[in-house]
């Protein structure tokens, strides 16, 4: 447990110092700002489509930090040094996933407030959007970590990251946007199930990918 905390604090501090935390949230707000320019300032239309739009923005924002998640640590030998000490890749991935979620999702949740104002979302939609994002972002973070580990040993994997991650995120998008649009409980439960499933398999799948990529 102390080991996980040590790794977690390091990961969080490193992404904080590198400035990588601002990229997704800046992108998210930018999309919310640009959307009314693209579809016109009709408040009714914005209110109806805004929730789904913000989900798409969150999904695309989740792509941005992926190519940095493991690349630096692999290049400078940190992953090898951790493996040498008998620290399981699973622990490394769990710590990275927790730090990535906190650094990526928390600013996004805070930014949802101004974004909802820009898109004229009412309070109930905003609440559903925030709940959906809080439950769905662990899935997006897990997918990001998983894809980052899978593409680590590929050169120039930038394009492949999107092609791999976005199709896998379709269920999260459908259930999340579905709940934001309509208060039915079923999409939320399915979103929670998808999120739980992805968070549960990511440590093992990503750890296997990291091990396979080492040789």
């Amino acid at each position: 447990m102390r080991l996980l905390a040590t790794l977690f604090v390091r990961d969080l501090a490193r992404s904080w110092r590198s400035g990588a935390l601002w990229l997704p949230v800046g992108f998210y707000l930018l999309v919310a700002m640009l959307f009314p320019f693209a579809v016109g300032p009709d408040p009714v239309l914005l209110a109806r489509t805004g929730g789904g739009m913000l989900w798409v923005a969150a999904l695309l924002a989740a792509l941005l930090p992926v190519d940095r998640l493991f690349a630096d640590d692999a290049r400078d030998g940190t992953l090898d040094q951790l493996a040498l000490r008998g620290i399981g890749e699973e622990s490394v991935v769990v710590a990275r996933l927790a730090a990535h979620w906190l650094g990526f999702a928390l600013p996004l949740l805070v930014a949802t407030l101004p974004a909802a104002a820009l898109l004229n979302l009412d309070g109930a939609t905003l609440a559903r959007l925030a709940i959906g994002l809080a439950i769905g972002t662990p899935a997006l973070a897990a997918l990001g970590v998983l894809v980052a580990a899978l593409t680590l040993s590929l050169r120039g994997a930038g394009g492949i990251v999107g092609l791999l991650l976005l199709p896998l995120a379709v269920p999260v998008l459908i259930f999340g946007a579905g709940y934001a649009a309509d208060a039915g409980g079923a999409p939320l439960k399915l979103l929670a199930a998808a999120s739980l499933f992805l968070v549960a398999i990511t440590p093992f799948a990503a750890a296997a990918a990291l091990r396979a990529g080492r040789s």
């Binding site: 040590t6 400078d76 030998g77 940190t78 090898d80 000490r85 620290i87």
Partner: peptide, 26 residues
Amino acid sequence: TALTDERAALDPEQSVARALGWWARL
């Protein structure tokens, strides 16, 4: 076992003492 290879595995933004201290605690 400890390994020193061509990659330093030290956080570039931290001071040498802090970066080494992190590994020493580990």
